[in-house]
Structure formats: structure tokens, C-alpha cells
Simulated scan of single mutants.
Amino acid sequence: MSDTEAHPVRISSHPAQLQALEPVLKKVRTRVGDIPALLALAEDIGHAAPKPGEGSTAKLWELLASVTAVDVAAGRALEPHLDAVAILAQAGVEESKPGAWGVFAAEGPGLKLEAKRQADGNVVLNGSKPWCSLASRLDGAVITAYTEDNGRAAFAVNLNDPGVSCETPLWTSRGLREIPSGTVHFDQVPATPVGGAAWYFERPGFAWGGMGVAACWLGGTVAVARDFRTALAKAAENGREPDQIALAHLGEVDRIIASVTAYLAQTAEWIDAGSSADSSNAWSEALRVRATVAAAVERVQTVVTQNLGPAPLAFNEAYGKRMADLSLYVRQHHGMRDDAQLGALALKGDRRW
């Protein structure tokens, strides 16, 4: 059994507390590549999983990181469902449909989803939404749409409604092959408002959800680091001790992960203490967290691939899949554009230094 299979990812819990995650991780391992089974598991997990900002944010992030460490695509399937459950709870809206849920908030050129209130007071959606991951496999979604005043608001929708049609995208990437993200079209689809106008983007929970994604990236990074450590240990067992360069890189990986997990633990405590009640402060912290974890992902991947070379990428299916999945997943971070947002906030005085 490899390190990746054996251990949850620790952010702040005592190691003994993490043992509670092991049964879940065993189920994830048996369902890798089986999206319907993973979504059914996500629904089960969602009934008891912690919600951000309610005192156990670090435990939520440990769950997300640990599942993603087993399989990046499994984490990618779980995170949106837990985010949707949390959003609905924050808005005081009950899930109107059982099953697996997603969150669709992306925009794309030439596409627009509009929400209009009918004469009877009900809201319907018309138009198209891009980047809707697993839409054809999901039962419901929290989705953003333009309102009649051209603002954006969130709505809960039944994705099995006859007015919903999902495109099958031409997904050429090796990464996240199980989770293609295509365009979904809506034709007079009934929708339930989730929060008021602009609530979705202005609530602190928007930032918390963004940090939950970063926790998934961390889990994938830890798995890559474990792959590296396992490869060096096996080489040593076979009489080929790692040289100073390999050891230095393993040490670098160790301190990167230690610093990132400590930062996430501190941030989770900050959230649970109510310090992120100001949504602007919450978003600046989310930008810091996401950029810090994204930089860790890219550095660890670079170090590990330089040391292990082409062989595992060519011949180790689990390692190659993890690298491809994680490389695509982390591109949800917008790099220097997100840093530019953070710089603008720092210029206005939102900084810790």
C-alpha cells in the first residue's frame, strides 16, 4: 500500500482524529473512475460533512484534501456537491431535489443565462451556461444567472427538467477525463432564488468555497509528494540511495507542504472565529490562500518530475493520471490576474504588513 492510499491529509487535526476519514477513503479508492458511484458517495458524505464557517472548517478541508489525495477527479466531483450544500444552507434554502449537486458560476463569450420573473411570481431560466462540469450526471445545481436589472444572482435548478439540455464536449485533455465540462442550455426552466440580488458573490461563503477548492489542490500536491517519497524509498531499498539533489528536493517539498498546511490551519481558525464576516476581507484571504496553494502545486510538480524523469509519466498510470488531473484542476487559479486583484486590494490598505 502506498502512502497515498494509506493516509489522510492533515491540516490541523490530531493524527488519531484523522482515522475517522479512512473508511471514506477506502470507499473512494474502490470507486475511482466510476463517476456515478463517486457522485452517490458525495451525496452520502454531504449529509454529515462539516460546513465552512461553522467551527470545523479545517476538518472540511482535510476531507476534501484527503479524497483528492486518493484521486484528483474524485475530489473534483466531491467539492462542488459540498459547496452547493453549504450555499443552500447559508441561504436558508432546502435542497429541493435529492442527489448530487453542482455549482455553475462561470461565464463565457457569446453565452448568457437570464432569469426572469413570470406573472405568477415564479422565476424561469433561459439561455446557456458554459463550464458546467458533469451536468448530465447531476440532479441539481446552484447556478448564477443575469437578472432583469443586469445583475447576477444565484438560483437552484433541477437539472433533470425537460428544458435542460447538456452538450457533450469534445474533451481532448488527458486531465480530468471523467469530469468533462460542457455548455448547458436552459429553456423556460423553473428556478428557485438562492439569497437576494448579488448575495451569492457578496457573502463570505463565496470566498470560503474558493478556499475549499484550494484544499483539493493541496490534497493532489500531497499525493504527488508521497509519490516522490515512495519512489526514493523504493530506490533505496534496491540499493540506489538518493543523491544530495534528490534529498534537497524532498526537503523542499516537505517544507512547502508544511508551510501551506499551517497557513490553511490558521485560515480555517480565522474563519471559524468569525473574522471573515466582512466579505471583502474574506475574498482577499481567499486570493492569498489560492495563490499560495497554486504556487505550491506548480513547484512540487516541477521538482518531482525533474527528479523522477519520464518513466513514471510514461508507465505509471496512477502517477500520470494524478499529474494530468492536477495540472488541469489548478488552472482554475488565474495566476497573475488573481495576484493583480490582490495587489489592488493591498494598495487600498487591505494587507497584513
Rank of each mutant, 00 (worst) to 15 (best):
Pro98Asn: 11
Leu313Tyr: 09
Leu170Lys: 15
Gly33His: 13
Asn160Gln: 15
Ser128Val: 11
Arg29Gly: 15
Arg331Lys: 11
Ala91Ile: 09
Val189Ser: 01
Gly102Tyr: 00
Glu241Ile: 06
Ser327Asp: 11
Gly349Trp: 09
Met211Trp: 09
Asp278Trp: 03
Arg152Val: 13
Phe201Asn: 05
Asp350Phe: 10
Pro130Gly: 05
His14Met: 05
Ala105Thr: 15
Glu43Phe: 01
Pro36Asn: 04
Lys321Phe: 01
Asp161Pro: 01
Ser275Ile: 04
Arg10Tyr: 08
Gln266Gly: 06
Tyr329Met: 12
Val194Gly: 07
Val9Pro: 02
Leu250Tyr: 02
Ser2Trp: 05
Thr302Pro: 08
Glu62Lys: 01
Glu178Ala: 13
Phe155Ser: 07
Leu170Glu: 13
Lys112Glu: 14
His333Lys: 12
Val164Ser: 06
Gly274Gln: 11
Ala225Lys: 04
Ala84Gln: 10
Arg177Met: 05
Gly335Tyr: 04
Lys27Gln: 15
Gly140Ile: 02
Glu95Phe: 08
Leu287Pro: 01
Glu22Asp: 15
His14Ser: 03
Val304Ala: 10
Ala58Arg: 07
Gln332Ala: 13
Gly163Leu: 14
Ala37Glu: 14
Gln244Thr: 07
Val164Gln: 08
Lys112Leu: 08
Leu38Asp: 00
His7Trp: 10
Gly212Gln: 08
Trp131Cys: 06
Val28Ala: 07
Pro130Leu: 06
Ala233Ser: 14
